[in-house]
Amino acid sequence: MEYRKFVHTFVVRLDRGDEILLSLIRLCREEGIRLASVTGLGAVDTVQLGVFDTEKKQYYSREYQGLYEIASLMGSITQKEGDPYLHLHMVIGNPHTGECHGGHLSRGVISATGELIITEIPGTVERREDEAIGLNLFQFHEENG
C-alpha cells in the first residue's frame, strides 16, 4: 500500500496481495482517521461478500476466487470502542464469464491494483450494537452536530 494525503483526502494505491480491510485499518491507525467515506475500484482475485439476514440476525457470506474487476467499492469508516470500524460494500464482476456479485465486504485480496479515495470528515461517529436489529449502528453525540 502506498498513499498520499491532500488536505482531508487520502489517495491510496493497493498493490497485488494487499488485503483491503487490513490495509485500511493500518491507514486509519497510522493517520488517526476516525471518520471518513471510502470509494474505490481495481481488481481482486479473492473476495468474501455477505448479506445480513435481519430475521436470523446473522451474516451469510460466500468466497469468490478468480478474475474480478471491482466495479464499485464504497462505505464508511467510523469508530467502535476506540478502534477503526469499517463498513464497506463491494460489487465485483467479470464480463468474460458474465458474473456480477455484490454485498458486504469481509475480505478482499488485490490481484493487480486497487485505487481508493478516502475522504476524511472532521469529527467522530461511534458504533453501538442495536440488539433489535443485530447490527452496529451509528451512534451520534451532541458535539458531532
Rank of each mutant, 00 (worst) to 15 (best):
T97D: 00
R128N: 05
Y59A: 09
N94Y: 15
M1D: 05
G145K: 15
A36K: 07
E81G: 11
D130A: 09
Y64S: 10
H141Y: 12
I92R: 09
T46S: 10
G32S: 06
E31R: 04
L88D: 06
F10W: 09
V11E: 04
I77S: 04
R29Q: 12
E129Y: 03
V109L: 09
E2W: 06
V47C: 11
L73Y: 13
R26W: 02
H89F: 14
Q79K: 01
G32H: 04
R26H: 02
G82R: 11
E81K: 12
V51N: 11
V91H: 11
I118C: 08
G108M: 04
P95D: 08
D15E: 12
L137M: 06
I117L: 06
K80E: 05
D130S: 07
L27Q: 07
E31G: 07
T78Y: 01
Q65T: 14
P95L: 06
G145I: 15
G42Y: 03
A71M: 15
E142Y: 06
F10Q: 06
G114N: 14
I133C: 01
G103I: 12
S23P: 04
E143R: 13
L14C: 09
R29S: 07
H101E: 08
L41Q: 08
E115M: 14
G108T: 05
V38T: 04
L105A: 10
L41H: 09
Q139I: 13
G93H: 00
H104C: 02
H141S: 14
A71N: 15
I121S: 03
V12F: 01
A36V: 01
G103P: 10
G40K: 13
L27I: 06
V44Q: 02
M74V: 14
G75L: 08
S106F: 15
F52D: 08
A112Y: 11
G42F: 04
G123V: 01
V91C: 12
G75F: 13
N136L: 15
E31D: 03
E120G: 13
